[in-house]
């Protein structure tokens, strides 16, 4: 199940569409609900993947706009007529275009969208492998201090000890 109606404010929000919101809790009206719970569940799932065209970024399942209502009823009608989920979506897409799909279809225009995370992942993995490769031969364990370093260090530490005492 997907979140049905989303408002989280990421900033102090000035809610322009506030009047819609009160009703939004009741986007789906009891009269629309199908008697068959399996079909109804399918209808809800489909609705939540279809964008309400007149709203600001809501699915038809979340919106109380009149068009959203009509489309919900239509979705249920198509289901009762025996359409599969895909057929119902195709029916709506044929009329309103891919814009209605909240899950963008896998087409040329969305290759970057769908492959983007994978490409990033592969790129980053490659970069990391390269990162380790270039470091091979260098041990992660430090070599012990040379005598020379030891001498300088004791000089340095004694200096700071002096200062400690000076405090």
């Amino acid at each position: 199940m997907k979140p049905r109606f989303g408002i989280l404010s990421a900033a102090a929000v000035f809610l322009l569409f506030a009047t819609d919101m009160h009703y939004a809790a009741f986007a789906v009206e009891p009269s629309e609900v199908l008697a068959n719970p399996v079909l109804e569940a399918r209808a809800r799932a489909i609705s939540s993947e279809l964008r309400c065209l007149v709203c600001q970024n809501e699915s038809i399942d979340e919106s109380n706009a009149s068009l959203a209502h009509d489309l919900r009823v239509l979705v249920r009608k198509r289901l009762l007529a025996g359409d599969s989920n895909e057929q119902v979506k195709e029916y709506i897409v044929a009329r309103y275009g891919n814009y209605v799909l909240l899950k963008p279809p896998f087409i040329e225009e969305t290759y970057v969208l769908w492959f983007g995370p994978l490409i990033l992942l592969l790129g980053a993995t490659a970069a990391i492998i390269l990162f380790y490769r270039r470091r091979t031969g260098q041990s992660s364990e430090p070599t012990p201090l040379t005598d020379e370093e030891r001498r300088s260090l004791s000089l340095l530490l004694s200096k700071s000890d002096e200062k400690e005492e000076a405090r």
């Binding site: 997907k2 979140p3 929000v13």
Partner: peptide, 14 residues
């Protein structure tokens, strides 16, 4: 808001 959810991937949430 009475929608029973808590996160909706809205641009403002993102």
């Amino acid at each position: 808001l009475g929608w029973g959810g808590y996160w909706a991937w809205d641009p403002v949430e993102n």
